[in-house]
Design a protein around this nucleic acid. Structure first.
Lengths: 188, 188
DNA sequence: ATCCGTGATGTCACTTGATGACATCAGCGT
DNA sequence: ACGCTGATGTCATCAAGTGACATCACGGAT
């Protein structure tokens, strides 16, 4: 055994989520999180840049998966078709943990600072998708617009799926939403 | 004359922007801003909720103008046509102060916290536009999607306009970008 | 077997952002 | 002349975040 309990980062993440759910984000101090994880506040900040980041650990991985899905789309795919492939990947990743998604989302929705952080992560996804589109030869403005539109669809579909009491698959809601966007922009 | 110099809020805004430009957002303390404005840090926080907010003073007004423009669109207008009216209003407001826009944008772009704040303001605009669409009878999902798409276009167009060395009108870039989005989503 | 470097953590001190409680006082209406 | 009000100051305090340095089990090198 090591000198310390293993998985410090995972313990911190678990403790933080628990406390944020129990008493809310603002009412939780970093010292409390660290204490519940058997560590000190200083150590918390060695693992996470700030108090919010502990909730957004998987977002880099999430983004990478979307980008690889987009990269894997055939060369013949149009920009929006390539983006659609990324959205399928997003649905596959998020769609299987509905309860976790709901819980995490409710914590984030309840706090403006956390919503800000969520938005910047999504903006990062948008930028990454636009980069990926550019790599496959799409013009800059088209790449940005397609990426923005894709993230917009992702946002709306995810929220509908999480909010909705029924149990339709996320992937289905996502495809529907994309179709709706197409219909909306197709009017004169 | 009053006991104090007038326009405390305006002095704080001016001092903050100056300092953020001179030495960057993080390198500027609230105490310094207040001092330059001839006030104390405590007073700064009576006018602005936090250190970032001082840069986003006009955003509520901005949002209101977009909403009224959308509200003023004829009943016969499609959702995207109504959104387009809001974009025209945005172009009219931002388009006449290119240098100010550039300066403010460069400060915001240079700092992650400020970008976060900008994003949540845009998210608020999106929500407000969606609400306005719903008020005119557009279905919820359509309203959200159209608003998201509109804000996406606004974002891309604004950034192109601010970055671009030429001097095309913002309204023109905006219309172009919207047309591009339509073309992108129209492909199979 | 001993020594040493390393990495994960702790400890301490400090700056800054942010907020609550209370004091001050010019100007205004009565 | 009086008291109220609103804008500001003063003071105390908490929590976020960071830099500097100490600690010490472990694992490899000698």
């Amino acid at each position: 055994m090591g000198r310390w309990e293993p998985n410090a980062s995972a313990r911190l993440r678990a403790a933080a989520l628990e406390l944020y759910v129990e008493r809310g984000f603002e009412q939780t101090t970093v010292a409390e999180i660290a204490q519940r994880a058997g560590l000190t506040a200083r150590t918390f900040f060695r693992y996470f840049a700030d108090k919010r980041e502990v909730l957004f650990d998987g977002s880099a991985t999430f983004q990478q998966h979307l980008v690889s899905a987009l990269d894997s789309a055939p060369d013949s795919a149009s920009p929006m078709q390539a983006v659609s492939a990324a959205l399928d990947a997003a649905a596959a990743m998020l769609g299987e943990r509905r309860e976790f998604s709901r819980q995490r989302q409710s914590v984030i929705a309840a706090n403006a600072e956390l919503r800000e952080r969520e938005l910047i992560k999504m903006a990062s996804v948008s930028t990454a998708l636009a980069d990926a589109l550019r790599r496959r030869g799409v013009a800059d403005a088209d790449a940005r617009l397609a990426a923005e539109a894709g993230v917009g669809v992702l946002r709306v579909a995810f929220e509908r799926w999480v909010t909705h009491s029924g149990d339709r698959e996320l992937s289905q809601v996502m495809r529907e939403s994309l179709a709706q966007l197409k219909a909306l922009t197709a009017d004169r």
